[in-house]
Design a binder for these strands. Structure first.
Lengths: 213, 213
DNA sequence: GTCTATAAATAGATAGAC
DNA sequence: GTCTATCTATTTATAGAC
């Protein structure tokens, strides 16, 4: 990835103001939610004048949708690739779980922002953004259907299977965030779980859930 | 439950203003989150003057904590009772799942409010409220430990087991809310799942997850 | 593209009459 | 206990100079 930095003290046009705003917005929205974040907060974090945000984005909602849409598009591409890969359904499922965790590790704002939007009932999302969300679900559903057709999976309603895997994934990310608040690490539900263990547990649970008997 | 209603047109002291505020706050906070709700919104829904809210509660945060605390205390009592009941661990686990769903059915604000607070990293909760949250987790952990001691469950980290069961539960509630928004019922991830099916699925998945091999 | 200044609306919270 | 009116701070958003 190319790194573009403005020369120190430069007064000319900053090449990546938009990117700085975008990244600051992702972090802020993830940390405090749509209503909890002010446009000033984003400007401050991005080290950008507030008016610049309105120069690059129509308004706060459009910026938010851009962040969530980009996030969903990225994970959607990953899932679609896995679903289309040349692997057994069981391997695809394991890969789905592993990639989801790795994806979240590389983009810490992702799970919390997604969980927040889900918890809120997705009131900020338009149909276009929801369609990106759908792509993730459909990719997962394809893995399931292939497995059922091959007889390696028992038939389970894709919605139930999806929530059974993604729900714990997101909830664990939220748990880690709660634990990060000061004075909480002693509480038993906030002990650290290595992501290797998380992945292994979810993979085993998912395989058992789908196992024909 | 006794029903107390002020006589129509009464100008005297309303007996249950506090309750009206409390219930309105639960509904509003659940629907739009701490930052998304204005004290005016709560006053309007409760059909109470805004100043009355500050007469009964110190401020917005104290009101919010009262709502969440009451919610956690109620579910905590239920879980503790199940853990102490005279049942096999497997039956206790099934009962935990069923009661959690039934509890949410009877109190529609519960799952969303809880998921919201979790997603936010519980920034609004003090240690006292978190302790109530802990009680729910500990009750669940006791069921697990009893099962492991009796050999009916394999040993699984209680945090992983807890998120694996409660995560899907909460995520499904959020899903139902997303589906409720207009123009969304056609999307495949928003199809309705009967709660009977949800319970059965989670019970089966949980038992398989914990099954020794 | 970038900045300052400010408009316009809304938020949380309180004073004080009844 | 209940109400009206209001204070103060903050918020989204824009106008307009450079």
């Amino acid at each position: 990835m190319a790194i573009r930095t403005a020369s120190p003290g430069s007064k000319g046009p900053r090449p990546d103001t938009r990117t700085a705003v975008f990244q600051a917005a992702a972090a802020e929205f993830s940390a405090r939610g749509f209503d909890g974040v002010g446009v000033d907060d984003i400007a401050e974090r991005a080290k950008v004048n507030k008016a610049m945000i309105y120069y690059h984005f129509a308004d706060k909602l459009a910026l938010y949708r851009a962040v969530v849409g980009d996030m969903l598009a990225t994970i959607g591409t990953t899932v679609t690739e896995i679903a289309a890969a040349d692997l057994t359904p069981a391997d695809k499922l394991n890969r789905f779980i592993e990639q989801f965790v790795r994806h979240a590790d590389a983009r810490p704002w992702f799970p919390t922002l997604m969980l927040r939007e889900i918890a809120a009932g997705a009131p900020h999302l338009d149909l276009e953004t929801l369609t990106l969300m759908k792509a993730v679900f459909l990719g997962f559903g394809k893995i399931l259907a292939d497995g059922a057709a091959a007889g390696t999976f028992r038939p389970v309603h894709p919605v139930l299977a999806y929530t059974s895997i993604v729900g714990p994934l997101l909830m664990n990310a939220a748990r880690e965030r709660m634990a990060a608040e000061p004075g909480r690490s002693q509480l038993p539900m906030f002990v650290a779980i290595p992501h290797q263990d998380l992945i292994a547990h979810l993979q085993l649970t998912a395989q058992r859930m789908l196992e024909p008997r």
